[in-house]
Design a protein around this nucleic acid. Structure first.
Lengths: 289, 289
DNA sequence: GATGCTTACGTATGACGTAATGATT
DNA sequence: AATCATTACGTCATACGTAAGCATC
């Protein structure tokens, strides 16, 4: 169960080919073959079917473990090195699309005003990627957002010991077309909307909604993108409903109605590993309020 | 960052001695010295101070990562092997002290009645140990209990992909001496008790309580044991209060008052890894109701 | 017959043990 | 002086590359 062999295994499984994996990893075909053979001998089980190359049942289980395992290994190394590295003025933040809300943006401005030498760059990415970037040291801080019950933490990918502190919790609103039959109400209960058509977007994943509330929420349209204006235009055109933080709807093409029950909020959390005193720690302190 | 070297590192750190670690691991002193040197060279940092042998700051960070990492590695291996192993009739359950409540015990009886060949053994241990035992395949199923908000999952140690399903949620009561000034009330709010003295026990860890409710809950007495009768006698004698599932107080020396707010429950979860069809899967199905 | 995985074999790297060296109490 | 970690060196295992073999499309 050498991580080296595990890396090779996941690469082979991803490509469905020994030779392609060998090319990516800088090995010969033969070496990859030997590594897979060694892993299979170690476990006493075949992990891959050949021709076509695809994982066996045991292989699929191992794949489920291998990804997180290798991530944590990289995270451990990065965390140790980061704790020892001398802090700089250039800070990279990994942010999810809706994490930079007015509260966060204002705090960021305050931090920059307090330290003019600070150079900040924001990199938008998905939630798991943000966690991975912080864990692996490719970002100094992370800001991740998501749906949660009030004062409940987000369920983030576990990449080992990492700090996650709540930064803001904001009201969620149901975005729906201006002419929608329910658009006149003062507030909406999610229970009344389980049978409506919903947008499936990374900004409001229906799987998470079902997880929190229960079954239902049929998919009206799947939008693989994180542009709020696009989402609102899709909502306005009747493709489906979605949930957004209230601040994301200012001057929008769609109506936004507060969510009555069950009570859910849009939560933003700040992520970071070990932070030696320095600009990164200062920024983290300002952002977490 | 070879797991091999990581294992050696944690062993050395635990013993505070290269030679003792070498003896435990079956290496020579020299080999251990070389392994630590290799790890330090790989990271470019000293991890241990010598004479006396104790971790540096970087070493402490690595230690935090190494334990869970090695656990997940063993868990991955165990999970793959378990999925392939032929199921037997002897099932080992890792259970935390309060996990076997009347509901669980009744379901276990039902399962045994339904399959007379079933041989079950229960092994009591702490929560993290229970997770580790299931993850590493030293137990077929696990039953873990803890405090949680209603229908919230327990926060268990993450040892990789593992199934955790709720089995029972039960009312919590505040155990207090029969003559206590509050003992006459119908129910109690936790907020009224943050300044009372509390028992610190594995059955009701105050850290978890503070995590869920807020600061306070000063320690009256620390009891390192899991015997409910002992706890109730300590409560009756006025050493401090504690929370227990209602069913644990039948015929007790202390009074038990229902908890009004904030609403917390005693939750039991069933843990298992990959379960091929067989007695283990059948038992899991019965236990999860 | 071409493509792609496996096997055989030679080489080189490195991991451990023995034994000598050095440091600390 | 005794204890314990480090360094030096010899040996053995193993991991990779080259090249030949073999199965599948």
């Amino acid at each position: 169960m050498d991580p080296h062999l595990l890396t090779t295994f996941v690469t082979v499984a991803r490509h469905g080919s020994f030779s392609a994996a060998a090319a990516e990893l800088g090995y010969t075909q033969s070496a990859v073959s030997q590594q897979i053979a060694a892993l299979e001998a170690d476990l006493g089980l075949p992990l891959l079917l050949r021709r076509p190359v695809e994982p066996t049942e045991a292989g699929r289980r191992l794949l489920e473990h291998a990804g997180p395992l290798l991530l944590r290994l990289r995270a451990a190394r990065a965390d140790v090195l980061r704790a020892a590295a001398r802090p700089g003025h250039r800070l990279r933040l990994a942010v999810t699309p809706l994490a930079v809300n007015p509260v966060v943006a204002a705090r960021l401005a305050r931090a920059r005003a307090g330290n003019p030498r600070l150079e900040v760059s924001l990199h938008t990415c998905g939630r798991d990627q943000a966690v991975a970037m912080v864990a692996e040291g490719r970002a100094d801080l992370g800001l991740a957002d998501g749906l949660a019950a009030p004062s409940d933490p987000l369920r983030l990918l576990d990449a080992g010991p990492m700090t996650a502190v709540g930064v803001s919790e904001e009201e969620l609103v149901v975005a729906l077309p201006a002419g929608h039959p329910l658009a006149g109400r003062a507030a909406l209960a999610l229970a009344d909307l389980v049978d409506a058509r919903w947008l499936q977007t990374p900004l409001c994943p229906l799987a998470r909604l079902r997880d929190l509330v229960g079954d239902g929420f049929p998919v009206g349209l799947d939008y693989q993108g994180d542009n709020v204006h696009t989402v609102l235009n899709l909502v306005a055109a009747g493709h489906g409903l979605t949930l957004l933080p209230a601040s994301a709807l200012s001057g929008a093409a769609a109506a936004g109605l507060p969510l009555a029950a069950p009570r859910l909020v849009h939560r933003v959390e700040l992520l970071h590993g070990a932070l030696p005193p320095g600009p990164a720690a200062d920024l983290a302190a300002v952002l977490s309020g």
